[in-house]
């Protein structure tokens, strides 16, 4: 469908223009939780957008990796959303965000242990059974890692392999973590099985200075960096062209900037396809 094109994450400041002007954007992704309300203007807009664009739903609050059970109300609302909008992809994160009923509303890092991997596999199956369809899971950026356990790439590969779900490979997150935790990002890509990547994400980040070691914050507030574009090219060489999304969540620029950034990704996807042909 839109395998060889890059879309954008649709955020509130751009909804009015997308509705009015229907710009040429191959596909759009929205955060699932932004549409959890029972009704209202956001749904009216998304109904109209869904009629004109392929759509994917990207969840940020389900807390797949929490030792607590999944929140049935949250899962129920996600199911209603999936039933209503019939998205091309539904994705969640390989992270946790709640414990003992308290939610931190963040994508918190998991230990790369067998216990955490087994829990994620069970939870992915639970979500897929509830939604009646497969989901993708995304590797997250992190600012700390726990002692012991597998490397992050081994952990992600293990979860994806054992659960059978697809991977939403966030290339920026791989790069951010490679700097924050001192590993080779290309080695990370090599550790991921070739056939599992179903979608990729790209975003901007912020490099902190004046610290005793390098640190990058996954801020989604800038253009994709040269290093991430280079890693993206390595990723599509390895995994083939995959639907790709530009995420921009803070200091959001005019819509044109996102469309141009998506076009840069599409050029790379087309070049990869030409090489494969």
């Amino acid at each position: 469908m839109y395998a060889l094109c890059a879309g954008i994450g649709l955020r509130a400041p751009h909804v009015t223009r997308v509705l009015a002007e229907k710009p040429r954007i191959p596909w759009l992704e929205v955060h699932s939780e932004n549409y959890f309300a029972a009704g209202g203007a956001a749904h009216d807009a998304l109904e109209r957008i869904r009629a004109d664009y392929p759509l994917s739903l990207h969840g940020v609050g389900l807390s797949l990796g929490s030792a607590d059970p999944l929140d049935p109300a949250h899962l129920g609302r996600l199911r209603e959303l999936v039933d209503r909008y019939q998205p091309a992809f539904v994705s969640e994160h390989l992270s946790w965000g709640a414990i003992d009923g308290m939610h931190w509303n963040d994508l918190l890092p998991l230990p790369h242990t067998r216990e955490a991997a087994a829990l994620l596999v069970d939870r992915i199956h639970e979500v897929e059974e509830s939604l009646g369809r497969p989901i993708l899971v995304e590797n997250v950026s992190s600012y700390l890692r726990f002692h012991a356990g597998m490397s992050e790439a081994e952990f992600v590969a293990d979860v994806v392999r054992r659960s059978g779900c697809g991977l939403l490979l966030d290339v920026n997150n791989v790069y951010v973590n490679s700097v924050n935790h001192g590993f080779d990002p290309v080695d990370y890509l090599r550790a991921i099985p070739c056939g599992v990547v179903a979608e990729m994400h790209l975003a901007g980040h912020t490099r902190k200075t004046g610290l005793p070691e390098p640190l990058i914050i996954d801020s989604h507030d800038d253009f994709v960096s040269a290093e991430v574009w280079a890693l993206y090219e390595r990723a599509i060489e390895r995994f083939g062209p995959r639907p790709t999304l530009i995420e921009w969540d803070a200091r959001i620029p005019p819509l044109e900037a996102l469309i141009e950034e998506a076009a840069r990704a599409t050029q790379r996807l087309e070049a990869c396809r030409a090489e494969l042909a």
Partner: peptide, 11 residues
Amino acid sequence: NPSRSGDLCVY
């Protein structure tokens, strides 16, 4: 008052 939901709209 910690958040009690993964949906920030209710926080």
